[in-house]
Nucleic acid binder design. Sequence first.
RNA 1: GCUCGGAUGGUGGAAUAGGUAGACACGCGGGACUUAAAAUCCCGUGGGCAGAGAUGUCCGUACGGGUUCGAUUCCCGUUCCGAGUACCA
Length: 918
Amino acid sequence: MEYNFREIEPKWQKEWAERKTYKVETDHSRPKYYVLDMFPYPSGAGLHVGHPLGYIASDIYTRYKRLCGFNVLHPMGFDSFGLPAEQYAIQTGQHPAITTAQNIARYREQLDKLGFSYDWDRMVQTSDPEYYKWTQWAFLKMFDSYYDYDRRQARPISELTALLSSTGTAGLNAACSEKLELTAEEWNAADERRKQEILLNYRLAYRADTTVNWCEALGTVLANDEVVNGLSVRGGYPVVQKRMKQWLLRVSAYAERLLEGMEKLEWSESLKEIQRNWIGRSVGAQVFFGIKDSDHKLEIFTTRPDTIFGSTFMVIAPEHDLVPELTAPAQRKQVEDYLEETKKRSERERMADTKRVSGVFTGSYAVNPFNGKELPVYISDYVLAGYGTGAIMAVPAHDSRDYAFARHFGLDIIPVVEGGDIATASYDAKEGRMINSEFLDGLDVKEAIERMFREIESRGLGKRQVNYRLRDAIFSRQRYWGEPFPIYYKDDTAYPLTEEELPLRLPEISDFRPTSSGEPPLARAKEWHTKEGYPYETSTMPGFAGSSAYYFRYMDPHNDKELVSREANEYWRSVDLYIGGIEHATGHLIYSRFWNKFLYDTGYVAEDEPFRKLVNQGMIQGRSNFVYRINGTNKFVSLGLKDGYDTQPLHVDVNIVRNDILDTEAFRRWRPEFADAEFILEDGKYVCGWAVEKMSKSMYNVVNPDYIVENYGADTMRMYEMFLGPLEQSKPWDTNGIDGVAKFLRRFWRLFFDKDGSLRVSDDKATAKELKTLHKTIKKISEDIENFSFNTSVSAFMICLNELGDCNKREILEPLLVLLAPFAPHITEELWHQLGHDSTIFDARYPAFDPNMLVENSFEYPVSVNGKMRFKKELPLGMSASEAEAAVLSDPQMEKYTEGKQVRKVIVVPGKIINVVI
RNA sequence: GCUCGGAUGGUGGAAUAGGUAGACACGCGGGACUUAAAAUCCCGUGGGCAGAGAUGUCCGUACGGGUUCGAUUCCCGUUCCGAGUACCA
């Protein structure tokens, strides 16, 4: 009987589904383990060979953990709200729900063919009302909460109103959009509308007029992580800054906890670094500068208070609140022109010419609180309204941007730290000795900073302050295919629906097109309003809403009373292993952590971090093939000969190329214009060139997993993807090497069956050598799986097979089957049953490693002379270092290398090497 | 610009509390079986030099230094590649 994967694989996939082999229940008698994949967005293109990489790794780990006795939760679902389905709907008029359902069915089919151990009974879909009910629910909870910095947690808004009505804002240390000063009397006297306005200033989900990233082409606003280089991540359309009323989540309130929480997580340093940079904590000083002939104070933020004596002017952002107050009548025209000009520049233009210096003088002067010097106040767009206070003290000698500005406007440049040369450039480094700075002179920069913090605070000029780069997340999108907000408006004031009214279902509409005015498509649903006729919010939630807490839903997916029951949550707690792409570092992985911490604060969930260990699989790139057409002809020249001709490389479909040899007949059939192509061959073959590129249709390098499964089988596909290289590394897909893995599985099968198809497994006792091979492999495979080094474990299986020869002993083969089962579940399940077992191999016990099996009584030492390898010497184990030394020095081979010279010393490293130094 | 990561045969990659560099696999070359092909099996395969040959010998982990008996691994500098971020004061 030959290994026939085409028969075995569908057979077991069907059995597993029917027997519900992978069904998981809460089970307090076993330790739990939660393995999660980042769920996919079901795109119309289906899966390519790169997508399953992480799923295969997580499936191997899941099955391994299960064999080790854990109760493993390993679910899968679909992130089914989103832009592409909606874009498709706009083009074709087909409802996104229909295309989404089709795409999901296709994904299911492709995933099932790979033999994953998902408990499909727990599947979730973010666009399912039964699911998004809980997304809306969480939003309502955030709407009903504020963040108390003193207690470092979210609290119900009712506590805030109680506080406001008894003591006002006195002593209140809460996250807010704008600092308010309010007495209890003022609060109590305020009308309903005003009260709601005040509360919005504190709610964790709030609505505000803010500068947003507006994407005209997509007709929607975007969050910071959805915009790269002034272009939308989806589609690459230009994005401009616009002021609009939007819903936001007060993520910034959690900045410090998001930073601290990372410390105990098992995430890669590089991922943590990305999040740290994104959160962008910086310690500095808040300082108030007086304004000459005015009562106004200008509040600035600086991380370099030590350079305050080098400040020669001030700069405020064009959007700064004090712009009108600080603009002198004589300057009004220039200032207005400048504001008009900056408004017109798109974000992208602004980024493109960061070198261009622009700005305008307000006509006002600020006063340096330390030396009374008058500093002209400028407006410039190199100062951002959204960071710090939107105003800076400019120190041109020690900040390159201030330097460029000063040079452009001919302003003074006063060095206050030794080390640079202000004639050519600013000196930005935080080291050196202070000069020109009165009481700071002679101090080191670091000492000077500390000294200034104390001075500023003791003189009452300001205080030490921590600033974060992390902004609140804009939460509304002017699109159709997303979660509706459970919000309605009464007198333009937002009110929440009650929990009982959830889910608020997405209404049917026929025209999904966005509008350039920013009015969402949902506004076309004229019949869509509350019982009393109040209109609903018509924007929808962004993509990250549905993916922020989905891992809770898997714990208890059919619960219609709660997001997750207390019991299920306390058992499964949080995700132990999360596998997915690094591209979510500043999006999903921040939002989820925020969302989780919020739910933790409110007491709904047991853990404050969602993903304990996280592994980022690398991207699988495409490996493109090229043919070389001689210019002006339909002749193609092989790679090795192309230099003799004037050629142009053309992409060729990788599916008609094997081991870089072109199938010339298939090439002629490929496209009509190549039907009469001629070839200049080398050694009778046409050799193609190749390059690593993104996997994409236009480069003809897309490999479909269905094709691999059809031709090699799922087990081979799984093992080969792992064999390709380290999981976390990006690497090109190259079908060329797959034969090695296919050959391994065929050879493995032949250990169990004769040529005539009869089972050849015997109950004879295994030899010491065979047992040694087995236990060496158990040790290696277990360590590799724990380290996610799956490529080396595949190698270890191959080495094991090479060493075993044609061993047919049950004592060896049975444990080996279990070891291999996580990687190749179908073939091992089949052989397991062939060996006479009734239940699934995944109910077996993982084989125990016995170190005694590896014990040797001698060791072959490599002997080196002056660090250079010379010969090998077999020595009994347990020999003392001096005995080993004597044995090596008396070896006849030694003479050749010592050549009569004195041996200075001998270094014996037990179990490793013996080095003789002459 | 700043931050982080990387560089090993024709190819993917293995080996780092410093200890036989190139495991395993692909590809390639040679051979066996076969009418033939596929499949399978065996041998060789980093480079140079010497030798008929077993073998010997030198060089070799991007480049230049250093520490060490010994460096792919540690330290300093350089080059190139990749990722993140970008007027964040």
